[in-house]
Amino acid sequence: MKITIETTNGTTTAHLEGRLDTPASTEVTPYFDQLQEHADGTVILDCTELSYIASSGLRLFLALRKVSMAKGGKVIVKNINDGIRQVFMMTGFLNMFEIQ
């Protein structure tokens, strides 16, 4: 699992790459803590290279979303594949995030 974060014009974009399974989620938790610091603005989670997500990954997404809402920010999820889209659907995440 690899994660790259870049910030331009107040918009923070995280490029997620690989499988976000249970051990990977533990691994990337610091990155998400970092993202939460930018949660007052727009945070884009670019999932173009994300092939898999488990519930632990979803928890990270949800935690970020909660902080962002509290700070008046915005979380955009970009380019999820069909498998992840189905997981989002099963969990109701499609309604909670702005999906692009």
Binding site: S55, S56, R59, K66, M69, V87, M90, T91, M96
Partner: peptide
């Protein structure tokens, strides 16, 4: 069971795993 209709602020963090198992 997880209530998937709740808004993000109301949703608890946990409980998603078994929910996904049941769904799949």
């Amino acid at each position: 069971a997880v209530d998937t209709t709740l808004s993000a602020s109301e949703r608890p963090i946990g409980g998603l795993g078994i929910h996904l198992v049941r769904q799949i």
